[in-house]
Design a protein around this nucleic acid. Sequence first.
DNA 1: TAGGATTTGTGCGTATGTATT
DNA 2: TAATACATACGCACAAATCCT
Lengths: 230, 230
Amino acid sequence: MTGEGRARFERIYALLRSRICLLDYPPGVRLREEDLAKEFETSRTPIRRVLARLEDEGYLRSVHGVGTIVTDIDIASLEQVYRLRVELSELIGKLSPVTPDEEAADLFGAMRARCEALAKSPNQRAFAQLNMDFFHLLMTLTENEPLQEFSERLYYQTTRIWLKTAAGLDGYEDTLASEIDFFLREVSDIATAVACGALETVGQIRRAHVAMSFARLKARARGDALPEDS
Amino acid sequence: MTGEGRARFERIYALLRSRICLLDYPPGVRLREEDLAKEFETSRTPIRRVLARLEDEGYLRSVHGVGTIVTDIDIASLEQVYRLRVELSELIGKLSPVTPDEEAADLFGAMRARCEALAKSPNQRAFAQLNMDFFHLLMTLTENEPLQEFSERLYYQTTRIWLKTAAGLDGYEDTLASEIDFFLREVSDIATAVACGALETVGQIRRAHVAMSFARLKARARGDALPEDS
DNA sequence: TAGGATTTGTGCGTATGTATT
DNA sequence: TAATACATACGCACAAATCCT
């Protein structure tokens, strides 16, 4: 695959994955090749190429005669994904970290500003988008491509389930506000560390926050009360 | 994809990947969809499904009008892959390690025996196969599926390049014998650790050997003399 | 430079499998 | 249980791109 076709492939792939992970296509939904072909003004063939990749990566499952279904994930599998994600998070600061220049520091500062604005008017979708943007910014701190690729896979898999779980809760508005608060602290701490050029510290902060995020997710799944904000 | 078609897909995928990684298809070789379709007695369509996955995983690159070419990899990229592989190796003992039963210990013992036999009559292809079998046996020690999947990707990518580099050297017979010797030690140490149920130790031994293996590879690429066997 | 040979990419009709009535 | 509707899997023909003479 090369040239123009390649570009179209990447575009459709990124868009569909984004829809899956932002729950525009929630787990269980059936995607129809024909509909997608019509939307992207092409035939079924290039669409099938994209769906095949999304299936290989675990976002979809095609069943002959039925349809192409957005996968769900059980809590046990999710735990495995999260545990690996925790370990990989720290490697950002260990494997080929880049020395952040002033421009990079500014980008992290801008991220903090966006986060503060969000905290004032919480919104789930905006939070999801900001979270995703922050992830991609973090990934620019390492030049290790396999690490980038794997981190991305784990991130998208966990995030969509995180969103699904969060959305299904009673009083999820409080939860959302609370999560945005935790996230603001993370972004803030990491922005500071980046400004100092302390990449290893960035990895450790990230690791801690990913781990805590999953701990809160499990706690809520069990119906526990959240520890008070100190 | 489901049922019979799925099984065929997996079979062809595993076989082609094996051919790529054992250098039956060395880097640069052009695969023709038509030929593969004939060999597996099917049309181009299912073959293209397999090639697409192999391309997504980095083993192949399809170029419109030219062919589907087995990728090569530069030493810089290989270093990135190896460094991540070193880190993931240790996780076998940390993320959902299984408690090995007597049968598992026996399997590792059998692996050691095969390795000792190989040391007496070195053979590159047999070594590659044994190495691959040992890898898969190691993977049974964790139940973390994402870790299994990523480790597998990194293993296959590094192994084929390792083989390519090793095969191209002057006096590679000595190198081969030496590498088999190192490998025998690794298998032996790990078999012992498994027998003790010391999974964390298994991960540490593995990590050390993966790291040393890459160090030797780089040293040979620079044309250094190998340190003497003590 | 032009044209023919070759190979992958695309489009679409048909086969096959599933679910529902 | 059988028939019908419908979606993916497959195979083939043709378009598009590249290479070589």
